[in-house]
């Protein structure tokens, strides 16, 4: 690649080039992800959709540095990923808050671990860091629950706190693996609103893995559809509905049409897989 081209392009937050993942070796080798190219500009909100087991979560793990590619490169924030160097935020379907800490302390946990915050943790945990946590919890409507313990909160509230924990250290990249998957319909829609507000206010780069096409259309600036295992990206399209989006908008013809197209692509991908297996 010539230098001129790469210097003109705005800095990519995430760049996968020919990145592939395979587990095992020889006969038992399983390809989880085919060589994949994917670029994400700073501030983009990407949703990854596709049939189960297609390698969506594998892409997240690559971007987080938890998994090394078997071939190709993964560059996040301008450097090759190495688990220690990054400060990405992650949130999963299971909120995994620590039951012995209050919500405030749970959300503050990354500041205790990530450099450079950890060096100032003892000094600032009761002043600056505390205010920061409170401001963030206020954004998601949890300001009254800072001193509660996780078991005193509902599933939706726990997931809000979980999002806060993923964002408190202002990560260069936010990775969400079906964070709203276990919630009921109404709570989920509520959380979409919360997530959108957080993103509009703080503009992190986000990669969201989801099964819910409506969720993808509501939140993302761009949607990638993946094929069945071994996964690859078979569709990549921008989502240009105005913001802030509302749940009502998801019933408009344009939105429904987008859902339909995504759905067809995924059904295609699934039927190819079934044909291959059969």
């Amino acid at each position: 690649m010539d230098i001129a081209e790469s210097s003109i392009r705005p800095r990519d937050a995430v760049e996968l080039s020919r990145a592939s993942v395979a587990f095992g070796r020889g006969e038992a080798k399983v390809h989880a992800l085919q060589p994949t190219d994917l670029r994400l500009a700073e501030g983009e909100f990407l949703a990854l959709v596709g049939p189960s087991g297609c390698g969506k979560s594998t892409i997240l793990k690559l971007a987080s540095g938890l998994l090394r590619p078997s071939s190709g490169n993964v560059i996040v924030g301008g450097r090759e990923v190495a688990a220690r160097a990054l400060r990405v935020g992650m949130a999963f379907q299971n909120p995994t808050l620590l039951p012995w800490l209050t919500i405030e302390r749970n959300v503050m946990l990354p500041l205790k671990i990530v450099r450079p915050f950890r060096n100032e943790y003892r000094l600032k945990r009761k002043t600056e860091f505390r205010d920061r946590v409170h401001a963030l919890l206020d954004d998601v409507g949890l300001s009254k629950f800072t001193n509660h313990y996780p078991w005193q909160l509902s599933g939706g509230m726990l997931q809000r706190a979980n999002l806060c924990r993923a964002l408190i250290h202002e990560p260069s990249l936010l990775l969400l693996d079906e964070p709203f998957g276990a919630l009921d319909q109404f709570t989920r829609e509520e959380l979409w609103g919360t997530m959108q507000a957080l993103w509009m206010k703080r503009r992190p780069t986000v990669m969201l893995v989801t099964h819910d096409l409506k969720e993808a259309g509501f939140l993302a600036t761009r949607i990638c559809v993946m094929s069945a295992r071994p996964g690859r990206i078979i569709d990549d399209r921008p989502v240009e509905f105005p913001r802030p989006r509302t749940v009502e908008m998801t019933f408009m013809p344009d939105f429904v049409a987008l859902n339909q197209r995504l759905r067809e692509r995924i059904i295609d991908a699934r039927s190819t897989q079934i044909a291959e297996v059969g």
Partner: peptide
Amino acid sequence: EPELEDVLKSLGASKMDLLLNVGLP
């Protein structure tokens, strides 16, 4: 929980961080 371990490792947590903040409590 493996997810929690992932969350903390992706923050750059060392084995000692995990032990002190999660494992022991």
